[in-house]
């Protein structure tokens, strides 16, 4: 368990996932964009343009480092070299936040580049909590853990995802990153009520919210199967679930995630403006 973090935190404003192609427009006129999120793994080179741009951006915006490759849910040990790379990045950048996923992605065979699912059991809980302790010790900071998007269920799961995440936060002192789009996707794919999930979620632990777009497909029996693609605008039911969530939690730093088929900057800025308008309507 770590002590309260003395570093600056993310503002309760709208942020965007940073894309290099937006550098010039973003720095010329960020509009409602109050902070940026980067994928840690894209900034693990030794130098060159990515690092130079990140240094320039960090002078102007609070930055959230979002890891996608640490495999916190992996059955094996955490990759110590990857943890060292994360520490190096956090040490020089001093980001306002560090977050990772409740998922696994690395196996003996290598890195699989997807956020793979976990059964919610005591064994998983013990392992994930141990890995989060390691991460928080190595980075010397509190981290946020993000809820996944789910496409299937596990026979061995014996507790709900909000229960699982609440217990992880209680045991490790970590915060949570609530991806509202992921809640909507999982609710559709697994057949639960999204507002009931939010009602059961430990909102006090939420340090950041994600909003993103998803694709629509069908399963073997023709039921809707939503895919977490981050490749389009946030849909209205997800905006509604977001309003419901921050109506209960109060305002939280809110990120627009758009990683594939990346739009022009004005489109992204308009999504951020919509989130900012909702945030401003919520009493702190």
């Amino acid at each position: 368990m770590l002590d309260a973090n003395p570093r600056p935190t993310l503002p309760n404003a709208a942020g965007i996932g940073y894309k290099a192609r937006h550098f010039a427009e973003l720095t010329a006129d960020p509009g409602p964009v109050g902070w940026l999120e980067i994928h840690a793994e894209n900034y693990m080179g030794d130098g060159g343009r990515p690092i130079a741009q990140l240094k320039a951006l960090a002078d102007r915006f609070p930055v959230s480092v979002h890891g996608v490759g640490l495999s916190i849910g992996g059955e094996g040990a955490l990759d110590r070299y990857h943890l060292l790379r994360l520490r190096k990045l956090c040490d020089w950048l001093q980001p306002a936040s560090f977050s990772e996923h409740l998922a696994w992605s690395t196996h003996d065979t290598g890195y699989l580049n997807d956020l793979l699912p976990l059964p919610y059991t005591e064994a998983t809980l013990t392992r994930v909590a141990r890995h989060i302790d390691e991460v928080q010790d190595a980075l010397g900071r509190r981290m946020l853990l993000e809820n996944p998007s789910s496409y299937l269920a596990f026979a061995e799961s014996d507790r709900s995802e909000p229960e699982f995440l609440a217990e992880i936060a209680r045991r490790t002192g970590c915060g949570l990153l609530l991806d509202v789009n992921n809640v909507f996707i999982s609710a559709t794919n697994l057949g639960f009520e999204p507002r009931a999930y939010i009602d059961a979620f430990p909102l006090d632990a939420v340090g950041e919210i994600h909003l993103g777009g998803h694709d629509e497909d069908e399963d073997d029996q023709g039921r809707p199967l939503l895919i977490d693609s981050h490749g389009r605008a946030v849909v209205d039911p997800v905006w509604a679930l977001y309003e419901y969530t921050i109506g209960k939690s109060g305002p939280r730093p809110t990120l627009i995630e758009w990683d594939n088929d990346v739009p022009d900057f004005p489109t992204l800025r308009a999504e951020a403006a919509r989130a900012a308008a909702i945030l401003e309507g919520v009493p702190a």
């Binding site: 059964p119 496409y151 299937l152 269920a153 596990f154 026979a155 061995e156 794919n189 697994l190 057949g191 497909d217 069908e218 399963d219 073997d220 029996q221 039921r223 199967l225 895919i227």
Partner: peptide, 16 residues
């Protein structure tokens, strides 16, 4: 042990 929560096959879900 990977399940379609509605019952029935989970193949397309795993294929994601």
């Amino acid at each position: 042990s990977l399940l379609n929560p509605f019952g029935g096959p989970a193949a397309k879900r795993f294929d994601v």
